[in-house]
């Protein structure tokens, strides 16, 4: 069940859904480096979302970068994140989710 305000942006909804998954230690920025730098210059004080959501023809394309706990299987946690993000954005007909495990830590 969604715990996020539906008027929030898809990026922030994806962030919140991913953070809520057990085994996710933290989220990292999924924004490509040039775009990240440009955004930081343009909006230095902004608390930017970490996931990236793009409208790709007729579907949303979501990329989430996560750090996961070594106490659980990284692939299992990644699959749970994908399912959580997909459920959170279920109001969109077609959603493509890419979960990138950027770190596996002993936390």
């Amino acid at each position: 069940m969604s715990t996020v305000d539906p008027i929030e942006t898809p990026e922030r909804r994806a962030d919140a859904a991913a953070r809520a998954v057990e085994g996710v230690v933290r989220l990292y920025s999924a924004t490509p480096i040039p775009a990240r730098l440009a955004r930081r210059i343009a909006h230095p004080d902004e608390d930017a979302p970490l996931s990236v959501v793009e409208l790709d023809v007729d579907r949303l394309s979501v990329t989430v970068c996560v750090g996961v706990s070594a106490l659980r299987s990284a692939s299992t946690t990644a699959a749970l994140v994908a399912a959580a993000v997909r459920a959170e954005l279920a109001d969109h007909d077609r959603v493509r989710v890419h979960v990138r495990v950027s770190r596996v830590t002993e936390e």
Binding site: A70, A74, S75, A78, A79, A82, R86, V95, R96, V97, H98, V99, R100, V101, S102, R103, V104, T105, E106
Partner: peptide, 20 residues
């Protein structure tokens, strides 16, 4: 690459696993 769900791990994450 075009699948509805794509799960990946970075090479950097793998090297960090080896290190710890």
């Amino acid at each position: 690459a075009d699948a509805p769900t794509r799960l990946t791990i970075t090479e950097g994450a793998i090297r960090e696993i080896v290190r710890w």
